[in-house]
Design a protein around this nucleic acid. Sequence first.
RNA 1: AGAGCAAAUCGGCUUAUCGCUUUUUAAAGAGGAAAGUCCGGGCAGCACAGAGCAUCACACUUCCUAACGGGAAGGUCCUGAUUUAUUGGGAACAGAAAGUGCCACAGAAAAUAAACUUCCUGUAUUGUUACAGGUAAAGGUGAAAAGGUGGGGUAAGAGCCUACCGCUUUUUUGGUGACAAAAGAGGCAAGGUAAACCUUGUGAGCUGAAAGACCAAGUAUAUCGAGAAUUGAGGGCUGCUCGCCUGAUCUCGAAGGGUAGGUCGUUUGAUCCUAACUGCAAAGCUAGGGCAAGAUAAAUGAUAGGCGGUUGAUUUGUUAUUCAAGUCUCCUUACAGAACCCGGCUUAUGAUUUGCUCUUUUU
Length: 119
Amino acid sequence: MDQSFQKELRLTHKKEIDKLFSSGKRIKSHPFIIIYNEVSQKTEVPFKLLISVPKRNFKKAVDRNYLKRRVREVVRKNKELLSSKSDKTLHIAILYSFNIKLEYNKIETNLLEALKKIQ
RNA sequence: AGAGCAAAUCGGCUUAUCGCUUUUUAAAGAGGAAAGUCCGGGCAGCACAGAGCAUCACACUUCCUAACGGGAAGGUCCUGAUUUAUUGGGAACAGAAAGUGCCACAGAAAAUAAACUUCCUGUAUUGUUACAGGUAAAGGUGAAAAGGUGGGGUAAGAGCCUACCGCUUUUUUGGUGACAAAAGAGGCAAGGUAAACCUUGUGAGCUGAAAGACCAAGUAUAUCGAGAAUUGAGGGCUGCUCGCCUGAUCUCGAAGGGUAGGUCGUUUGAUCCUAACUGCAAAGCUAGGGCAAGAUAAAUGAUAGGCGGUUGAUUUGUUAUUCAAGUCUCCUUACAGAACCCGGCUUAUGAUUUGCUCUUUUU
């Protein structure tokens, strides 16, 4: 099974990010806030992802890197949850809005629950 | 045994699976502080007739360095230890006889000295005492009281005189120098504070990779209102003034239009490692070898083992408090993530070793 997670799957353009934050739907699922929006655009990828850990919760860059890597790892291993839609591209932002560092296992279970709410 | 300080070294290695970034498709991939952004430089752009003022930084000496507010060696002062001439630690260490300001409380007096209690002399008075003069040794206050101690001297005293010490100053000698030593002179004049203003000396053009160069895409030197202007607007010389250069548009408001993507800069450099030589050292120099992350809403990760390290327990052997081996268990970590690049400083922090200091226990 393909578990790769390439650069194309990331949301990088500033315009697209602004649009997502202004018009996307929000789901709160502790400890995450998920913002998503379906865009009818011709792209080769099924979704584009943005992971964010606010600076005010984690002052040190090491902690922010730790959480972002773990969230990305969970998404990479469960890509098929987001790949179900066929002709549209899903723009999605995952915000970690909690001020305590969680273990990998807890992040995995909580995030999977949150992602299921989208469907 | 514990704590503190200083110095040195290290900051794991490896296999499998699934991934990420770069790319020559086979390899490589966070640190000693990558951190704070506190100094210094490279690099880049703008400026580069000049003068004055202001501002900022630094401040014992010599040296190192691309440079520094960094480092090395040394001097002076303060301070701890003992073996009393050695050694450890500390210092915003130029100027207080250029000027101005300040010195709380206490105290008589806090700076052109002064005179509370004393001491001494004279006059008045029965006496207590009062007045005038001399004096600054004694008392008391304070962080600090106008050289200190001994002797002489005196009515009592005073550098008034003298010896030693201190201070100021001159000369000589030694040292590249800070400075040190010796000899002579002065007769004591000069309180502290510059981490108060200030003075002196030295240095500094401004900005900062969001610098800057190029490519691609796209547009509106457009419209309306008000004001200024070839009788010099505006701009530049970078905080200000003078002065100089340039020479037709500029300022404010209203309502709007477009872009915000990529490449270079960017990792071969005051580079790293090893060895010899020079130097007390910081460091320099020569030879040989190496190429070592380049991301950009920002890669260097996840899971499971092994080695190694380590906490505790236990078994066996042995010189029983020691050492070695095995088994089980725990952890695999502290501080912390490159953002143009270097040299420093500062701060954070785990382990080991060495040295010094302190505390406790045992003998």
